[in-house]
Each structure stands twice: as C-alpha cells, then as structure tokens.
Design a protein around this nucleic acid. Structure first.
Length: 236
DNA sequence: AACAGGGTCAACCGCAGCTTC
DNA sequence: AGAAGCTGCGGTTGACCCTGT
C-alpha cells in the first residue's frame, strides 16, 4: 500500500547547477536505450546524482533532439507576441504552437527581447490593447530586421552543441564496449525486477520518448546536423 | 587593463493538478 | 477519502558574458 519512496530515502546529495557533458552523455544514453519511463526513478540507474526534475528539465529544454536552436525568426516573434496577447503567460501553450521551441526558451526570449521592444515602442503598446495587431507586427518586423544576426553571440550555443555532439558521437562505442553502459543496464534491469506492480504497468506502456524513435529520419538529421556543424567548427 | 553595470539564459524553486494506492 | 508520488508549469535566481567607461 505504501509506495516506495525513492528520492526521500536517498542519502546521496543531489547535484545542482550546470550539467557537465558527461552527465549529458549519461542522460542521452539512458533515454536512448530505455526511453522515458519515470523521471523520478531514472537518475539512479542512469548514473546521475540529479533529481528527476532536473533530468526532465535538461532533457526537455536542451537535449531533446527535436529542439530548434538559434535565433527566433520574425514569424516566430510575431507568433509569440500574438499568442502572449491572447493567452497571457501560458508559455507551455505558446510553445506548443512553435514546434522545436521550449516554454523556457520562449519565456526567456519574451522577458529579454520582446517585452522590452513592446515597452519601448508606444505604437506597439497601443496595438497591444486593441485587436489590431498589425501595427505591432510591423513594428516588430522593423525591430527584428534591425538586429543583425552577427550581433548575437552564437559562441556559447555552438560550443555547447559541439560538446553534446562529441558526447553523442562517443555513444556509439559506449553502447558496445562501455562497462558504464553495462552497469547502467544491470542497474535498470535490477530496478525493473524490483519494481512494484504499478511500475510493471508503466513498463508495459510505450515510453514517453520511445527508444526506437531515435532512428527516425528527423532525429538522425538532427544529430547529422550537429555533426556537420561540429566538423565546420573544427575546420575553422 | 581593470572594473562596473547590464543582458542573457540555463537551471532551480514552489506550487497546482493529476494519478495511484 | 485521503495521503503520497509524479509531472508540468510559471516565476525567479545566479553565473557568465559583453560592453562601456
């Protein structure tokens, strides 16, 4: 009747702060192999001293293969403005309308870019109060076009992507020869065998992000693009 | 060259809602 | 029915970077 309390019983202090490439490795590797079955229970078998919440956030906001990184387009700007006016700060709902963008990313982008642009432009403000969105759209377009791409620093993102790319490249050998992987697999299997009846139901279901979907063409493209990008960087 | 201030964004926190037992 | 666990959401924080002086 009483559920097994996993995290509360853990004596190991959970790590916080920025994720290392090694941690990214482990999370990607684990999800690739087992899919997403239970965030709060996967950190341990994945070899991570992180909370399930932290793992979920890292995956959803950064490691997920379908995330579109880079600058927001004018169209995306306009969509965010429009949706924010109609839906308010429901970032997840807004993110659902922008494939490849995360709620966190949109929220940050709103607070750091769009909000200021609107506040600095009375025309945009007046448009915000009326259904006539065209004025603000035009203003936004002019704002957007006024920002040269080269003015935005891509280095951190590229460096991070390069790191993740390296991480993922190494996964190939990881699966075949790594003892870490074996240990992870054993841990997971041990965990599965110890799991409760409820867990068994969980395991019979498709994972939220099934392992097999990594072989999808779009996902392959993602990693291929990262690889190409990495090659370009190293060739510079 | 060194410092201060501002901007950006990844990550954390607290809460609400849902599910399970 | 209610306690406990899990997930997802929005607000906030803090570290890092850039720019101006």
């Amino acid at each position: 009747m009483v559920r097994t309390i996993t995290q509360k019983c853990e004596k190991t202090p959970l790590k916080k702060g920025p994720w290392s490439p090694d941690e990214d490795h482990k999370l990607i590797a684990y999800i690739q192999r087992y899919g997403i079955w239970n965030w709060s229970r996967m950190p341990k078998p994945a070899g991570l001293a992180r909370s399930g919440k932290s793992c979920r956030l890292r995956w959803v906001n950064y490691l997920r293969p379908d995330i579109k990184r880079g600058n927001f387009s004018k169209e995306e700007d306009e969509t965010i403005i429009k949706l924010q006016q109609t839906m308010g700060n429901r970032w997840s709902a807004i993110a659902a309308k922008l494939p490849g963008r995360t709620d966190n990313e949109i929220k940050n982008y709103w607070h750091t870019h769009l909000k200021k642009r609107l506040n600095n432009d009375p025309k945009a403000n007046s448009a915000e109060k009326t259904p006539q969105l065209e004025t603000s759209r035009e203003n936004l377009s002019s704002f957007s076009s006024g920002i040269a791409d080269h003015e935005i620093d891509h280095k951190p993102q590229i460096a991070e992507q390069e790191s993740i790319c390296e991480a993922f490249g190494e996964l190939q050998s990881l699966w075949t020869e790594s003892q870490v992987t074996t240990a992870m697999a054993e841990d997971s299997e041990a965990m599965f065998t110890k799991s409760t009846a409820a867990d068994q139901v969980w395991l019979q279901q498709d994972p939220i992000f099934p392992c097999g979907s990594f072989s999808d063409a779009s996902i392959s493209d993602y990693w291929l693009n990262l690889s190409v990008q990495s090659d370009e960087i190293s060739g510079m």
